[in-house]
Each structure stands twice: as structure tokens, then as C-alpha cells.
């Protein structure tokens, strides 16, 4: 279990914009262990997708990444285009919020499923067909033979996401990255898709990075959680600790702002203000303008990462006193 499949160290991603550099991810470090689900949570724009696209080697051309992304003894940020394409086809797969953007509208579902099987797994056309049908069955698509002939637009949103998952599974990946895979779906379909991802994880032993903005989804799927804010990982913990003993004021804010369906006496509290634009906050903790607990120091100095106990870290000055690990990195 404690065997990391992926280790990200000091990831920095910057975009070259008209108005200068945009720091989208700033010093993200984390690892994903074998067979676990790591959830990345945070408001939109906090850097979740850019972090995962870095792992996939799919950053847009205007982005520059630094740091280390270690997978299978190699640093993905140091591989050439062809090498990273090999990894993407064989070891790491990704699914997105809107499968329509990654499915090709002019090819049948069957063609899109069979292609990677022929290219990456060297199956014959006949073998690939049989394998594709098997994959569709596995992701719970009824009448898979008929679905093979259909085009993406003929499928419902939930079915399209299942097809994407089938394609992602076709290479038997060690790591599946799912970027808000259920955000566009209705709750009853979301429940089906999350159940499917967890079941496939159990069956194959793959690891999963699941990106979401929904704390309910986190609670029901994650083993461990990263909370991101303004391009930084601000808290990391196992899922129970995160919900029972959250340390960072941002994590607490996210938890309090979520409406509770089971309790109507619960008072909803918004996090005041909005997420700053990348690079907007030059000094101090990036959360200080919205933080109910901000102190003078927070406005001046950016907190480093403090350790509450092994595996539970937060990037907040309030944590300094109980810091277990004074050797923690210092962040400028």
C-alpha cells in the first residue's frame, strides 16, 4: 500500500500570457500509492486540471513546467514527446468532465475503442473487436454489440462517460486520472459512474487521481485528499482526518459552505470573496484576504508546509506551533 506509483515534487507550471507570466501551479508536491484513490479538491481555477495535465504530458504549448514527476523510475518532465506518448497509451489514462471533447464525433464507438488495442496492444482486428465488446460489458453498457456501431452523439452523457472509461481501461493503466468525471452528470448517473470507477479500481489494483470540487464525492471515494488553493497544495490528509480534523481555514471553509442534505438546522457559511487571479496576491498567504483567522503575519509572510502528524500537512501559520517536522520545505 505504501508503495508510490507516482511522485510529484515541487511542480511549477507557468503560462506565458500577454500580461506576463501566470503562475498556475506553485510548488505542488504529493504522491499516489498503489491501489489508492487520491482526490484533489478546490474551487475552479485553483490548478487541479493543470496539475493533472502536467502528469499526462498534455499541457498546452504556452505552459512551462518545472520540478519532477516520477513514475516507474522515470521523470516524466524529462521525457521526449514519443516517450511520454508511450506512457500515456500504456500506463496512465485520463478521463474528462465532458467526454464529447475527447471522443471523436465522426468515428463509431467501436472504432475508437479498437484503435488503441490495435496500436498499443498489437491485437488483430478480430481480437480487438472481441476485447472492445468485453470492455463495454465491463463498464456496464447494455447491448455492447449494438453500441459499437453507434456514434458518440447517439449516446447519453452517462453512456459516453462509460465509453471513455472503457477506452481509458483498454491499456490496463497503472494510474487513472479522472478530472471531474461526474460534474456534468445528474446525481443518479453520478452514483453509477463513481461506483464503477471504485469497482474497477478494486478489480485491477490501479491507482486513481480523482479531481472534484464536491466534498461529498471526496468523502465517498478518497483514501487521501489534497486541497488546492491558488495553485498550491494547502492541506493533505487521509480522508477521515480531513473531514474530522481539518486544519487549514480554507478546508474548513469548503466544508462549511457545503449544504447538508441531512440537517436543516445547519447554517451555511460562504467563504467571503473569490479566488484571486494567479499571481494577484504577491505578499503573504494567498488565502489571507478571505481567511477568517488571518493574523498580521499572514499578510506579510507566505506560510510554509507544516506537519501535524505523519501524512497530515497544511500550509498555514496557525499550524506552526504543532509542527512535527521542522525540516519542512520553506516557501517564498
Amino acid at each position: 500500500m505504501k508503495d508510490p506509483v507516482l511522485t510529484v515534487e515541487g511542480l511549477e507550471v507557468r503560462f506565458q500570457g500577454a500580461a506576463g507570466e501566470i503562475p498556475a501551479v506553485q510548488g505542488a508536491s504529493f504522491s499516489v500509492h498503489r491501489g489508492e484513490v487520491l482526490c484533489i479538491v478546490g474551487e475552479s481555477g485553483c490548478g487541479k486540471s493543470i496539475t493533472s495535465l502536467s502528469v499526462m504530458g498534455l499541457l498546452p504549448g504556452s505552459a512551462e513546467a518545472e520540478g519532477h514527476i516520477r513514475f516507474d523510475g522515470r521523470d516524466l518532465l524529462r521525457l521526449n514527446r514519443e516517450e511520454i506518448r508511450q506512457i500515456r497509451g500504456n500506463d496512465i489514462s485520463m478521463i474528462f468532465q465532458e467526454p464529447m471533447t475527447s471522443l471523436n464525433p465522426v468515428f463509431t464507438v467501436g472504432f475508437q475503442l479498437m484503435e488503441p488495442l490495435v496500436v498499443h496492444r498489437n491485437l488483430s482486428k478480430k481480437q480487438a473487436f472481441e476485447e472492445a465488446v468485453r470492455l463495454l460489458e465491463r463498464v456496464g453498457i447494455p447491448d455492447p454489440g449494438r453500441r459499437m456501431e453507434q456514434y458518440p452523439h447517439e449516446l447519453s452523457g452517462g453512456m459516453r462517460q462509460r465509453v471513455m472509461i472503457a477506452i481509458a481501461l483498454s491499456c490496463e493503466p497503472k494510474l487513472l486520472i479522472a478530472d471531474e468525471p461526474t460534474t456534468a452528470l445528474d446525481v443518479t448517473i453520478q452514483a453509477q459512474i463513481l461506483e464503477l470507477i471504485l469497482k474497477l479500481k478494486e478489480d485491477t489494483g490501479m491507482s486513481v487521481i480523482l479531481i472534484t470540487h464536491d466534498m461529498g464525492v471526496v468523502a465517498e471515494t478518497a483514501d487521501r485528499v489534497l486541497v488546492m488553493y491558488a495553485g498550491k497544495v494547502v492541506e493533505e490528509a487521509d480522508v477521515r482526518t480531513l473531514f474530522e480534523d481539518p486544519k487549514h481555514p480554507y478546508t474548513k471553509g469548503l466544508l462549511r459552505s457545503m449544504p447538508n442534505v441531512d440537517d436543516d438546522t445547519y447554517t451555511l457559511e460562504a467563504i467571503p470573496g473569490t479566488l484571486p487571479k494567479p499571481g494577484e496576491i504577491q505578499q503573504g498567504c494567498p488565502f489571507h484576504p478571505r481567511c477568517p483567522e488571518a493574523m498580521d503575519r499572514c499578510r506579510e509572510e507566505n506560510p510554509r508546509v507544516f506537519t501535524h502528524r505523519p501524512g497530515h500537512m497544511s500550509r498555514c501559520w496557525l499550524a506552526e506551533e504543532e509542527d512535527q517536522d521542522h525540516a519542512g520545505e520553506s516557501v517564498g
Partner: peptide, 16 residues
């Protein structure tokens, strides 16, 4: 079907 923010809770989910 609504995911609840309570980790580890065993749920009787009615999957449609």
C-alpha cells in the same frame, strides 16, 4: 444518490 460528506459511512444506496 447524493454523496454525503461523511467518510466511511456505510450507505444503503438505491442505484437506479
Amino acid at each position: 444518490a447524493i454523496p454525503r460528506p461523511v467518510p466511511g459511512r456505510k450507505r444503503e444506496r438505491i442505484l437506479l
